[in-house]
């Protein structure tokens, strides 16, 4: 059975939900303390939370821990690397994804459901979605305002949209360039997403739309 590591830094707090979502998607998952090693895993997930209390910049300190060298190795080898919320911030700070996540345009913590348009289904994390499909997931962040000087440096995977999939200014909660909510690297095996798929992985949570992120990833890793 394929097995994923969920890396836990001091201050990570979505690790249990993420582990559960991966298991529900049909793979093994294990929470791994950042001081240990990532040997014997097929992919790695950096979960949400507030690693190192968001000191300096969100994700900046976690991105410079030794375990990130192993994460970079995963990325180079083409194995799946998924960063959710704080995990996305860590991936940009570590240089695994282009761009930066800046404080929200309206400077406050946003915690709410959003609509998203799936823009790229050619990644290991989105292969079970329909192109242009509109899905619902929650966001919960203060620093999710995605900035990149040249958007052609990334693959835009999810965009904040209205419920009909229109990419509008009103549907952009945090001021991100081009309403970007999730991006992937050129190969597609490294994905950063501000919306939380693990919090939308059970109908009792209000949506199951996020579960296919994990199902896609598991299916891809099995090949």
């Amino acid at each position: 059975m394929v097995k994923f590591a969920v890396v836990v830094f001091p201050g990570s707090n979505c690790d249990f939900e993420t582990e559960r979502a991966i298991r529900k998607a049909g793979a093994e998952a294990e929470r791994v303390w950042y001081k240990t090693s990532l040997k014997d895993f097929d992919g790695v997930i950096l979960p949400g939370g507030f690693s190192y209390a968001d000191y300096l910049r969100a994700g900046a300190i976690a991105a410079r821990q030794e375990i990130m060298e192993e994460v970079k190795e995963f990325a180079r080898e083409g194995r799946p690397v998924l960063g959710i919320c704080n995990g996305f911030q860590i991936l940009t700070e570590a240089g695994l994804l282009s761009g930066a996540l800046r404080p929200n345009k309206i400077p406050r913590f946003l915690c709410r459901w959003v609509h998203l348009r799936v823009n790229d289904i050619e990644t290991p994390f989105t292969s079970l979605y329909e192109p242009g499909e509109v899905i619902r997931m929650p966001i919960a962040h203060a620093e999710g305002n995605y900035y990149v000087d040249d958007p052609s440096k990334v693959r835009v995977v999810l965009q904040y949209s209205d419920e009909n999939g229109n990419i509008t200014e009103e549907a952009n909660p945090n001021g991100s360039v081009l309403n970007i909510a999730a991006v992937a690297n050129e190969k597609g095996n490294v994905l950063g997403t501000m919306p939380h798929p693990e919090r939308a992985s059970d109908r009792f949570l209000g949506s199951e739309d996020g579960l296919r992120v994990f199902r896609s990833m598991v299916e891809w890793a099995r090949r």
Partner: peptide
């Protein structure tokens, strides 16, 4: 370059 600033922003 390595930590205190993010050269992009």
């Amino acid at each position: 370059r390595k930590l205190l600033a993010n050269p992009l922003i």
